Amino acid sequence: MPEVIFNGPAGRLEGRFHPAKKRNAPIALVLHLHPQFGGTMNNQIIYQMYYMFARRGFAVLRFNFRGVGRSQGSFDHGQGELSDAAAALDWVQTVHPDARACWIGGFSFGAWIGMQLLMRRPEVEGFISVAPPANLHDFSFLAPCPSSGLIIHGDNDKVVPQKDVQTLVDKLKTQKGIVIDHQTIPGANHFFENDMDTLIENCGDYVDGRLGLTPADYVDVD
């Protein structure tokens, strides 16, 4: 899990990169929750999602948005963070140029940024949005949503009420050409504090189903 520093629009960005064993393996970019509410690339959901992708052979990057950890710059209310994510995807594509596909995983604020990024990058073929903050941010840019993906949240989420996520899902499901897999974890709160294993298992099962993977295809990431 090498530490990496790469150039972003507001200065250097700090990340962790797990290279893939196969030259044409897919890329995954994992985006953390709100920087002003303790969000970092070391959040447990981000950490576990990172390794979920790595075990499935992806080249995976997680990184700190501007102003977090050793990343330079300061919080920019989403616009700058979207530019950071685009720069991060550019970087991982440079070091892993033969990738056949790209996925984005994001938690809360990171899910909002990730879904904006997939609108700009046609190579993104799949996404996992954990607890997307549909009540706090405008998702109307998904018109139409260009990729199929998983939206997953807890039914005891006090930060993002279930009804707001359901409204977003219902809107996306009316679109032709994509499939939105919507999962609700009973009893889980916004941070999945007692439901982390279930969350990551469900995310992994979704990736396996999309890519036709079985445990025999997993790689050692120790």
Score class of each variant (00 low, 15 high):
V179C: 15
P186D: 07
Q36T: 15
L82W: 02
G209E: 07
D181K: 14
D90S: 07
I45S: 11
A99P: 07
L29E: 12
F75P: 13
G204V: 10
W112M: 04
T174H: 11
I46T: 01
L136H: 13
D76Q: 09
T94M: 14
W91S: 04
G67K: 12
Q72I: 06
V124D: 03
V219M: 03
K171A: 04
F107R: 06
P19D: 03
F58W: 10
D170K: 11
H18E: 14
R100A: 09
I128P: 08
P2F: 08
D164G: 14
A59F: 07
T184R: 11
Q48H: 14
H18Q: 14
D76P: 10
Y51W: 09
A99K: 06
I178T: 07
L31A: 09
K171I: 05
A59I: 09
Q72H: 11
L13V: 04
I27N: 07
F141E: 14
A143M: 13
A10C: 02
K173G: 02
P215G: 05
R66M: 01
R16M: 01
L89W: 04
R23Y: 00
T167V: 14
V30D: 03
N194H: 13
I180D: 10
I128S: 09
V95H: 05
L89S: 09
N189A: 05
V169K: 03
P35A: 06
I185V: 15
L31R: 01
G11K: 11
C145Q: 08
F107V: 02
N156Q: 08
L211A: 05
F6L: 01
P97A: 01
G114E: 06
L172N: 00
G38M: 01
Q72E: 15
Y47D: 15
M119D: 07
C145D: 09
R121N: 11
A28I: 11
D205W: 07
V30N: 00
N43V: 11
N7I: 13
E125Y: 10
L33H: 15
F109A: 02
P19C: 11
H34I: 13
G105E: 03
V165G: 02
Q36G: 14
L136K: 12
F127I: 09
F109C: 07
Y51R: 02
L213M: 05
A86D: 15
Q93R: 10
Q162M: 12
M119P: 10
H18K: 13
G38H: 03
Y51K: 06
L118D: 02
W112Q: 04
L33V: 15
F107I: 04
E193I: 13
E193P: 07
T167M: 12
H77I: 06
F6K: 12
C203R: 04
E14R: 12
N42I: 08
F139W: 04
L13G: 15
A25K: 15
Q44E: 13
G8V: 03
D98L: 14
N42C: 12
N24Y: 13
M52N: 04
L213E: 02
H190M: 00
Q93M: 05
